[in-house]
């Protein structure tokens, strides 16, 4: 009797395991792309004529490109199990403001100045977190406040416009115009914009860095287990510092385009990007424990957020309800991600 019982329970548990495996393995592989396909289907049902038009696809890609640039960098932070970079908003704001301030010195100086400022933020973050092992969330939060204070005090809380900074100088005015056109440059008869190209290129480079370089592999080890990585002789300080520098660099690229798109440099550029970017990265299948997920997934997450907004507007859901829907979809996807990883023994 007992033997039979044992056998049946064993069989039962076995069958249960395989059953769960199939669905979860699929989910684990496809991840957020399932959501993307679902949203595509919904969009097509609602608006079959226009949904797959060039205009709509371009508007979705255009809308996600700023968030996408940030996410391509933030993914490194999440991947190295440092949770989140809370100083993203001010990195975006400050790099935009500095580059606008440098407009009179020509477009090259102006762009490099902005990128350099952002990178500097990354270096400081990297030193504090990589070298001194400060808590990533709290340090970046504190640093964000400091930067925000500096930006507000330095510019007196006002907005700066490229053409005002340029003054009456003809050459500087031309530079200001070039700067404003950064976010408005299109290729192929207006169907592809520079912002999209930059975002996609950043994702592709990030993908190669993550999967095909020594640094990417080391980052995975550091993300999975910091102590193991340290004890096995990896230069963990260098790896984490580098990941912060990459993140801030990506944020400053985003900051340039943000300022160019607004035609305004202001301390409230990029407000709320800290959590909205994290949302997209987490949707893409990365976990806060680090070392999991991929760049393809992150791109899917960014795309899903953009498409969700697009579809909700097409259905006609009001802004109030959009928050609710976003929250529930986010929780659901993250729950499925966690569950599949756990049941497959990966968490």
């Amino acid at each position: 009797m007992t033997k039979v019982n044992e056998n049946t329970t064993a069989a039962k548990s076995d069958s249960r395991k395989t059953e769960i495996n199939k669905a979860l393995v699929f989910f684990d592989k496809a991840g957020v792309w399932i959501l993307v396909v679902c949203l595509m289907a919904i969009g097509f049902i609602i608006n079959p004529s226009d949904y797959f038009s060039v205009g709509n696809i371009r508007s979705i890609l255009q809308a996600i490109s700023l968030t996408g640039m940030c996410c391509a960098g933030l993914a490194y932070i999440v991947y190295s199990s440092n949770m989140n970079d809370m100083s993203l908003p001010m990195t975006i704001a400050i790099s935009g403001m500095v580059s606008i301030q440098l407009v009179p010195f020509g477009i090259v100086v102006c762009i490099f100045g902005g990128l350099l400022t952002g990178t500097l933020v990354g270096i400081i973050n990297g030193f504090m977190i990589g070298k001194l092992r400060a808590n990533p969330i709290i340090w970046t939060l504190a640093f964000n406040m400091v930067l925000s204070g500096i930006a507000r005090v330095a510019w007196g809380g006002s907005q700066i416009y490229p053409d005002v900074v340029a003054g009456g100088n003809e050459a500087a005015l031309a530079t200001a115009e070039t700067f404003n056109q950064l976010a408005r440059t299109y290729f192929f008869g207006g169907s592809v914009s520079l912002m999209m190209v930059v975002m996609v290129v950043m994702f592709i480079i990030s993908y190669f860095i993550m999967t095909h370089t020594k640094f990417g592999n080391q980052l995975k080890i550091v993300g999975t287990n910091y102590e193991t990585a340290r004890l096995s002789g990896l230069n963990v300080v260098r790896i984490i510092t580098l990941s912060y520098i990459i993140c801030s660099f990506c944020a400053s690229v985003c900051g340039l385009f943000y300022a160019s798109m607004r035609k305004i440099g202001s301390y409230d550029n990029g407000m709320g990007y800290d959590f909205s970017c994290l949302t997209a990265v987490l949707l893409g299948g990365m976990t806060l424990l680090g070392g999991k997920g991929s760049m393809v997934g992150v791109f899917g997450g960014v795309l899903a957020v953009g498409m969700l907004n697009n579809v909700m507007t097409l259905i006609g859901i009001s802004t109030f309800n959009q928050y609710l829907v976003t929250g529930i979809v986010f929780l659901l996807i993250v729950w499925l991600n966690t569950k599949s990883a756990r049941k497959l023994g990966r968490a």
Partner: peptide
Amino acid sequence: DIQSPGFEAAKCKQQVADWITK
């Protein structure tokens, strides 16, 4: 339609593009 995407240029852009599609 009435929507409140806030004061972010990128979000308003997406909103208007969606409206044009819809």
